[in-house]
């Protein structure tokens, strides 16, 4: 049922277990380490970001992407700590970045009232590139996020935390 399949370059493909990912998946984005996949899938008719661990095939919970649809253009950092996507709030489009380590959400409005069309998060989450429309033509702008987000680098912080005894 799910439209997720895996294949070697030589061509043979096999279908992955369906899990909770629904049919009609679009706009795939891999984490830098290749362990996670974000897609846009219809959820009750609304285009919604979904995230899956590719090794286990299991869906991963997101705290901040259950509303403000339609979602589009998901993008993941290296270990999948950060997930960025374009969301709709009222009549405005904005960028939402979920920090899956802390559970925090970072809604970002673009300067000068511009609406994001597509986006891409750098693997270490230090930069964000956004496609906007300006005077009837597409533009790409790059923003520095280093004052907003910790870096998510290869071999960096893990997503799990150790509980300390009181």
């Amino acid at each position: 049922m799910a439209g997720l399949s895996t294949a070697g370059c030589s061509g043979r493909s096999r279908r992955a277990p369906s899990g909770l990912l629904s049919a009609q998946q679009q706009q795939p984005s891999l984490s830098g380490d290749g362990s996670k996949l974000a897609v846009i899938a219809d959820q009750r008719g609304r285009p919604t970001v979904q995230l899956r661990d590719l090794k286990s095939g299991q869906p991963l919970q997101l705290r901040h992407f259950s509303r403000h649809q339609p979602h589009s253009s998901p993008s993941l950092s290296w270990n999948g700590r950060y997930l960025a996507a374009v969301i709709q709030r009222g009549n405005r489009r904005l960028v939402l970045i979920e920090d899956r380590l802390t559970g925090r959400a970072h809604p970002l409005r673009l300067p000068a009232g511009r609406d994001p069309v597509t986006l891409s998060l750098a693997p270490d989450a230090r930069e964000l590139a956004v496609q906007t429309a300006e005077q009837g033509r597409w533009q790409v702008e790059v923003f520095n996020l280093s004052e907003l987000l910790e870096a998510d680098r290869a071999g960096g912080r893990r997503e799990t935390t150790t509980m300390q005894d009181p």
Binding site: G3, L4, S5, T6, A7, G8, C9, S13, A16, A23, Q24, Q25, Q26, Q27, P28, S29, L30, G34, L37, V39, L54
Partner: peptide, 18 residues
């Protein structure tokens, strides 16, 4: 590793290719 959105028989799939 590569993920690609593919149209097949009127529906969108996502393939992951090594």
């Amino acid at each position: 590793r590569l993920a690609v959105q593919v149209s097949r028989e009127g529906r969108w799939d996502v393939d992951v290719i090594r």
